[in-house]
Design a protein around this nucleic acid. Structure first.
Lengths: 222, 222
DNA sequence: ATTATCTGGAGAAATTTTCTCCGGACCTGT
DNA sequence: ACAGGTCCGGAGAAAATTTCTCCAGATAAT
């Protein structure tokens, strides 16, 4: 959760712990319900009282800002690490799967038009992530392992699409597993040729599986 | 909007027109804001008063049901039409792009766990769409034009992923265009080999474009 | 052990959303 | 063109949801 403490003196251990839980819960809830999700659900999921949330983040704005900053920093870490790989396409793929797990690519767009990304701190956090990613893309283009007509925006937004949970009857673990599986398919489509065709991971879903799930959901409610 | 009139005697022209506008607006709003979107926004976007909405659809449930039924029927029409094509993979691609335009694949999952899909009428509407799609997939598998490990669930859920608008600073037309572009990439990934590689359509987005857009959005609010 | 710091939940206040009522407008028949 | 029934829109009361504060008690650090 990075160590972005705001105060000057070190926080007490329990306070720090609660802050981290709140940020993690907020990321999940914002991803699932959008930027207007009720704050008390975030507190509940973090296992704290609502007052603890308000104490740490005086208003919604400040919570959203912290969530985005946290997400940007984690994403930047992954980008830097992935850029170390010798094969740039492999680095790209690793980056995409990791970011999918972090859900940073789902939460950032969800909050993006609610907060300003223009101050110094934000710009720096953004650049820290975008630069290594752009470098990997350029390198993959040069190496001929990435389709020339695939751009930075495509990579970024495809991760967003794979990251957002599909609403409906899917349990969270199924949703996650499908995200990676579909990312595998996308990755395949990013290749300029068939030479590197990879296996698509995770369990596949048949028509029957889908129907069974939606039926189970109906029964649960009924 | 199909001609699913519920009453026994034919509706008056203005009433019928308003009903159609409401259904179309509801589809858009539910896609953008989810199943709990305020109903008066739907009325506003349809250009009718809120009372007209309540008159036609006594409660949220009944509106959601009508939206889903409408979407299922339109989807089934597309599936049947696409299944006519001689090349099953081409049919699949056409189907996916058309469904993307209709936004049916975005609205159905959004409402899916709010309404029952189990009554006779719903089951029939569902089957009408799933059967031709399953047939196309099977035919493409036999023809060797679709990866063997890609299933019904993959196709359906990938359309859902491409259909949902990306939240953030993207104008609607950009969002739509990117949906088709990314679907092109996905389609490429569905191929078993490079023989049929297609061009990826629509304008690409660079890192600079993305930054400019989010900046413009910030300014608009600021 | 002491003390400064942190916690949780109850509940008042504010905001948002739902849903009804009815005067008046608008189609459709003749 | 007119009569008759059908349909419309918006105001606003009622209900539901969400925000945000207060403070007695619990907890961590020295």
């Amino acid at each position: 959760m990075a160590d972005a403490v705001e105060g000057l003196r070190p926080m007490r251990a329990d306070a720090r712990n609660n802050r981290d839980r709140l940020l993690a819960a907020a990321r999940e809830v914002f991803v699932e319900k959008g930027a207007t999700a009720p704050l008390d659900e975030i507190a509940r999921r973090a296992g704290t009282g609502i007052a603890t949330l308000y104490r740490r983040f005086p208003d919604r704005q400040s919570l959203m800002r912290a969530v985005v900053m946290d997400a940007l920093l984690q994403t930047a870490d992954e980008a830097r690490a992935a850029a170390e790989e010798s094969d740039p396409f492999a680095g790209l793929v690793r980056y995409m799967h990791r970011v999918l797990d972090l859900r940073t690519a789902a939460v950032i767009p969800a909050l993006m038009d609610q907060i300003s990304l223009e101050d110094e701190q934000m710009i720096q956090a953004r650049t820290a992530g975008t630069q290594p990613l752009q470098d990997m893309i350029d390198a993959a283009h040069r190496a001929g392992s990435l389709r020339r007509d695939v751009t930075f925006g495509d990579i970024g937004l495809l991760i967003v699409r794979m990251s957002r949970p599909i609403p409906g009857p899917f349990p969270r673990e199924v949703n996650d597993s499908l995200g990676h599986r579909h990312l595998d398919i996308v990755v395949n489509g990013l290749r300029p040729d068939a030479a590197h065709r990879a296996k698509i991971g995770g369990p596949a879903l048949s028509l029957g599986d889908l129907q069974e799930m939606s039926h189970a959901e109906t029964r649960k409610r009924g």
